[in-house]
């Protein structure tokens, strides 16, 4: 092979070539996952780009039409375009999943760092409380939080996020305990680094690495949990086109119109699969393969 401009560092094509190489290495599964996530992101930010119809316009004359050229995913019992509703639903479902995960991860990071890096007493106290909270399945914990705060999309996100805090806190704490004993910290002390430098440049970044990976995959879990709460009528309520709420609304018509149920559910599954695949790739990248 001869040298082309794209192999010279600094040439814009060089970056493109590098990107192409990493895409080729990624494999078809990861590429599909990334593309799908991109599509979901576009749907969440600019649903108008993908869907022609208004998701809320009722057209009883066209109710329960099967998938056709005009309505790709058919219409529901009120004649609303299912495709438009699935596209517009991305925003509600993803927002629920992402905000819940963010709350859980940030809360977990704070509690976990305090426990892992603070004194023995603080660690003992925080972890005993976490132990007790971990005794409950996350969905039950979220349900209890909702019974206190009442139903609704914001409360559902808070409930799922709060319920996830103990799990994230444990991961951060155990990672902090490993990092705390890492030989490179001894090496940094021996080199003469200051306490603040060691804490902020070595301890915190290395501790939070596993959290980021876990949180990526956690968005999938939280999205499912959020749509489950909506399905049970405790999160986003119909007529808002959230995927779980659409399922709960459409399930009574499933016998005559399968498309009302199949497409929103498939949207959840596809989103969660993509998030998981990307999360795994991120984990491999961060943890690296053993040599």
């Amino acid at each position: 092979m001869t040298t082309t401009a794209s192999e010279i560092p600094g040439w814009p094509g060089f970056l493109a070539a590098r990107a192409t190489r990493s895409v080729l290495r990624a494999g078809p599964g990861l590429i599909a996952a990334v593309l799908l996530l991109g599509l979901v992101t576009v749907a969440a930010l600019w649903p108008g780009l993908l869907a022609r119809y208004d998701p809320d316009v009722i057209d009883l004359a066209a109710s329960l039409d099967g998938p056709n050229a005009a309505h790709w995913f058919g219409t529901d019992q009120l004649g609303r375009d299912v495709f438009a509703r699935v596209v517009h639903g991305a925003r509600h479902s993803l927002l629920l999943g992402i905000s819940a995960t963010a709350l859980g991860a940030v809360g977990g990071a704070m509690v976990g760092l305090a426990a892992g890096l603070g004194g023995r007493l603080l660690d003992g106290l925080l972890m005993r409380v976490a132990d007790i909270l971990l005794a409950f399945p996350e969905l039950l914990l979220a349900l209890v939080v909702i019974s206190v705060m009442g139903p609704g999309p914001v409360n559902a996100a808070v409930a799922i996020g709060v319920a996830a805090i103990p799990t994230y806190a444990r991961v951060v704490r155990s990672s902090a305990l490993v990092v705390r004993r890492a030989p490179y910290l001894d090496a940094a002390v021996a080199l003469g680094q200051s306490r603040a430098h060691i804490l902020f440049r070595h301890v915190v970044p290395n501790t939070l690495g596993p959290l980021l990976v876990l949180a990526t995959a956690g968005v999938g879990t939280a999205t499912i949990a959020g749509s489950a709460l909506s399905f049970l009528g405790l999160g986003t309520r119909p007529p808002v086109p959230e995927w779980g709420a659409m399922l709960s609304e459409g399930r009574n018509f499933v016998e005559s119109a399968w498309w009302i149920v199949v497409f929103p559910g498939a949207a959840i599954a596809a989103t969660v699969v993509s998030v998981t695949v990307v999360g795994r790739a991120a984990r491999l990248r961060v943890e690296g393969r053993p040599r």
Partner: peptide, 21 residues
């Protein structure tokens, strides 16, 4: 991966529709 990523309520509705209805 599909089994883990599919919401339980969706799978339940689909199974009931296919195998019962």
């Amino acid at each position: 991966l599909l089994a883990v990523s599919s919401p339980t309520f969706w799978v339940g509705i689909l199974l009931a529709t296919v195998f019962s209805t």
